[in-house]
Amino acid sequence: MLELRLVQGSLLKKLLEAIKDLVTDANFDCSATGFSLQAMDSSHVALVSLLLRSEAFEHYRCDRNISMGLNLSNMAKVLRCSGPDDIITLKADDGGDSLTFMFESPNQDKIADFEMKLMDIDSEHLGIPDTEYQAIVRMPSAEFARICKDLSGIGDTIAISVTKEGVKFSTRGDIGSANIVCRQNTSVDKPEDATIIEMEEPVTLTFALRYINSFTKATPLSNQVTLSLSSDLPVVVEYKIAEMGYIRFYLAPKIDE
């Protein structure tokens, strides 16, 4: 028996909006740790890993580890039927072939339930090694989203380079080129407005901009985004969900031939 009650139901809605265009079908895994998902896009260039810890839920009952295959675009459609302040409860029976979503309005005057059929999805779970990254950049998520959107009007790739000067985002296309440099800035009124750069070694990596742009759909989940970079490794773009979990996107770099 599975029963998960999420008071801040909008979190689940935002998570689905962040991944539904990147991944078509995926397994949600439920264990004592929490509610999680790991999936790659169809071309195996990007990987998303998300976790809502069990502590994030007001009520968390998961009698045995369960993996539930769902079409994410359909799940997003179901979640769009919930109100912005609704409490969302997920329910499934052991060995059942469906997942029930229950939406309760905050004052309990409206209760809706939607049942979705589960799918069998063959997915390979990848081991993500613990890595010391050469550079870690923390910056306002809205600023990062703005930069990616602006650059995608100019070119198809984004070079991210971190030096002691700051972090530089560059692109090049038919109409010309663009460079945007963000310097470390900790003298801000609110911590979420800070840009913090930790650098062991300078690093430059190039990525397909359309993937990075897709990751920024997670912006409503967090005021800050963290970019972790090492030469010849996938970048990690992480949005922390308060104390409750995270969504991490891994993107394989473009490599010089």
Partner: peptide
Amino acid sequence: VNKQSQITTFFSKS
């Protein structure tokens, strides 16, 4: 020329 690499090149099946 930049070639797109794949995630599976870096992370292996667990």
